[in-house]
């Protein structure tokens, strides 16, 4: 694929993002991150440092007060969340964003909402998703809310792949998921990067995250405290945890 050829090219560049929910209170205070094709980049840090907020800002759920977001050079700041799929960005939120009362099949069909006018194309995309994730084909008629946590994640990933995104923003993908399933989810994320997607992963599970991350950002109270490739942090997880604890003490 063309995307693989461009491995290592910057895909997302966010500069000096400032954002918050209430006026006068900034949760992000000048955060800069990048995401590269074919790489998993991981944002770590204690609770309440703005990791999830960062993803929300990147996806347009929360407007940035200042700063710049670019995807392959095109300005992304100011775009609404429902436009992101078309622009090539996928977002996996902390709780799988499925429609629990609709069947797995309808969930998939809605994933192809962009192509709703083209019947053949929707069917083809749904078919391909079912091929790729056989469990979804098996549970086609079931309400999505009845799936297990891991299956819901697969449904969500299958749905987001329909837009053929270049960038995945992933928030705590294994929070509240049993360990066996979380191994599977990290495999899926690794696969995404192997397919040439850029992945920006927010995670509390530092050990697991470091196993698949190519590059790490450590956040503290709305800023990036330190960053570096896995080699820099990987051998020194304990130092990272210590720094993390120090950071929580500060916040």
């Amino acid at each position: 694929m063309a995307q693989q050829a461009e491995k290592g090219a910057p895909c997302l560049t966010a500069r000096e993002l400032v954002a918050g929910y209430l006026s006068g209170i900034d949760i992000l205070r000048g955060v800069s991150v990048e995401a590269m094709r074919g790489e998993v980049r991981c944002v770590l840090g204690p609770n309440g440092t703005g990791k999830s907020t960062l993803l929300k800002v990147l996806f347009g759920f929360l407007p940035a007060r200042s700063g710049d977001i670019r995807l392959d050079g095109r300005a992304l700041r100011g775009a609404a969340p429902h436009e992101m799929g078309r622009l090539g960005v996928a977002y996996l939120s902390q709780r799988p964003s499925i429609f629990p009362h609709l069947s797995v099949e309808v969930n998939l069909r809605l994933g192809a909402w962009r192509y709703r006018g083209e019947r053949g194309r929707v069917g083809e995309l749904v078919g391909r998703a079912c091929e790729q994730f056989p469990i979804l084909a098996e549970k086609r008629r079931q309400a999505a809310g009845t799936l297990s946590g891991g299956q819901q994640r697969q449904l969500e990933i299958a749905r987001s792949l329909m837009h053929d995104p270049v960038l995945f923003l992933i928030d705590e993908p294994t929070a509240g998921v049993e360990p066996r399933v979380s191994v599977l989810i990290y495999e899926l994320i690794k696969d995404l990067a192997a397919q040439g997607k850029a992945v920006l992963l927010v995670d509390q599970n530092i050990k697991r995250a470091l196993e698949i991350a190519d590059y790490v950002y450590v956040m503290r109270t709305g800023t990036v405290l330190s960053e570096g490739s896995r080699e820099v942090f990987g051998g020194d997880t304990e130092a990272l945890v210590a720094r993390w604890l120090y950071a929580s003490g500060q916040s």
Partner: peptide
């Protein structure tokens, strides 16, 4: 939120 994520 999920609706916006799928592009609705």
């Amino acid at each position: 939120e999920a609706a916006a994520i799928v592009g609705i």
